[in-house]
Design a binder for these strands. Structure first.
Lengths: 237, 237
DNA sequence: TCAAGGTTTATTATAGGATAAATATAAATG
DNA sequence: CATTTATATTTATCCTATAATAAACCTTGA
């Protein structure tokens, strides 16, 4: 009874997420214009071959992320791009699925440059004892993998390291970056390792500064790491 | 038939948002512990005196923001704090409603210090012609209001100025900060004006640097502004 | 003609009940 | 003991009916 296309495209996820993903694709790609009224519930139910329940849950999901807005009698409107919450990991996933990610990667790098050095500084000041233990264990793994190099493992531990920095800031507003970072790392595996290999030295500098509680040095070390990060996606060949 | 308490507390919002808000309050306040399984749909329907439809939409809303996760047979679990998306304006509203906002304000300031100078630099590089016109008009209003001071009007135009900077970065990841900033400004009206009045000089420096396309100067000017920003909430008297 | 106010109508919002799917737990089996 | 099967519980999905909302369209009286 369900649309087989959706079943394939969305694989394991629940139905309303699959529908949401498809509508999100149309919005993010511009196929559905901003401020446009999308078809009514009944029409969309037929298009996707799902019940009103599933469709409405999909619309609610997109509304929550700033993509849509519904009103009785008026319909459901695509909100303008300013309202799309690109710092939501699920939305970011949908954006990445559009392809054409060179721009996304550049923009993400510009975000990291602003936020990560300060996050490292905050972590140096605020990391709990337990978080320092976790960071320590993770850095030891990095050190090991940098000597016995494995691209996939390096990506995972590199991601975990920077994730822990965000979680160690003790600042609620920095927490969401942890998931955004993970989403980006997993999507751009080829970029997760910095130019010239693992940059273990730069990571050591960040790690040491945080463990020593030296906020200024941590900030500086993280800024240096990002300066050395690749600025272009490799051509896929 | 509905719970009158909810009707009053949530005023105009749709029913599922009112329910979501109430559940969010319990989670954010810690009344519902992290990783805890909340009562089943049927129980919650009775507690809130709403239909399963409304309750499930509420749960879906909270799931979208990282507060909950549902599985058949298992139930609905409160996710750990690391997954809560504090960079979602609606969630932030709920956080603010808890009161005890001194900490929230401090954390927000730490976020601004990281992100806003870089946003100003990006705006200097990337603002479109139309965005420069908007920024120009807004700064003219700031200039006027700083001379004919009105606290409320200053807050609004100050908020609009910084909002426009985020929107002018040309970077998707910076867009969500615009709404987060607005939410914070509106909630802490007494703080939206910087120490010693309007800081019109510092704002002029940011404005001029952006209009001149001088990224480094814009970054520097915005950093200076934030250094001069109040670091404490005034006692309410 | 036109403006004020009521009526219709299209759309989403909410309710409520039935069935399906998923999965933890318990029971049965080899 | 391990592995499979059955069972029970919870969410997932479907369906239909009614309510609320607000835009558009009529009155109707000056």
């Amino acid at each position: 009874m369900h649309n087989p296309f959706i079943q394939i495209a969305g694989s394991k996820r629940s139905l309303h997420v699959q529908v949401a993903r498809e509508i999100a694709r149309k919005i993010l790609s511009g196929e559905a214009a901003q401020n446009e009224i999308i078809p009514s519930e009944m029409v969309l139910c037929e298009q996707f071959s799902v019940s009103r329940t599933a469709l409405r849950e999909a619309i609610k999901l997109l509304t929550s992320k700033g993509l849509l807005e519904s009103k009785p009698k008026v319909g459901t409107r695509v909100k303008s791009r300013e309202n799309w919450n690109f710092l939501d990991a699920q939305l970011l996933d949908w954006v990445i699925d559009l392809g054409d990610n060179e721009v996304v990667y550049q923009e993400f790098l510009a975000l990291r440059k602003a936020i990560e050095p300060e996050a490292a500084a905050l972590a140096a000041k605020n990391a709990t004892a337990q978080q320092r233990i976790l960071l320590s264990a993770t850095f030891q793994q990095m050190d090991y993998i940098s000597k016995n190099f494995d691209a996939q493992k390096w990506m995972e531990v590199d991601m975990e390291f920077h994730r822990l920095v965000f979680l160690s800031t003790g600042n609620s507003f920095y927490l969401p970056f942890a998931n955004v970072l993970c989403t980006m790392f997993r999507s751009f595996i080829s970029h997760s390792s910095e130019k010239g290999g693992t940059c273990i030295g730069e990571h050591r500098a960040i790690y040491s500064a945080i463990m020593a509680g030296d906020a200024d040095k941590a900030r500086e070390a993280n800024a240096i790491l990002l300066k050395n990060t690749n600025h272009r996606l490799p051509t896929s060949n």
